[in-house]
């Protein structure tokens, strides 16, 4: 719930440039991972650490794909604005 609220607010606020959309996605993944780590630490469990490691790797893959899409968009259009 908290992460959903944060994501909605960040996507609403991020109207400046395209990069802030990717930054907002990173922040969403950070929020979810942090919450899961805390809940796992509350129950003294190690599986949450493992799963958050997986999520960190997937966030890295997602960020690389998003930035490469931004580069290809730049090649296609010539500039990157806040409008799609």
């Amino acid at each position: 719930m908290m992460s959903m609220l944060t994501t909605m607010l960040s996507l609403y606020i991020s109207k400046n440039n395209m990069m802030t959309l990717l930054i907002g996605m990173e922040m969403l993944l950070l929020t979810v991972t942090l919450k899961m780590m805390y809940v796992g630490g509350m129950y003294d469990d190690v599986q949450s650490t493992l799963y958050s490691l997986y999520m960190m790797m997937l966030a890295g893959a997602e960020s690389a794909m998003g930035l490469s899409m931004l580069v290809s968009y730049y090649r296609l259009r010539g500039n990157v604005t806040n409008m799609l």
Partner: peptide, 20 residues
């Protein structure tokens, strides 16, 4: 580092609007 590399690579156009 990846983000900064992209920032140096692309020519960003950002609107001078105070969105907050």
């Amino acid at each position: 580092m990846l983000f900064l590399f992209m920032l140096s690579l692309l020519k960003m156009e950002y609107m001078e609007q105070g969105s907050m």
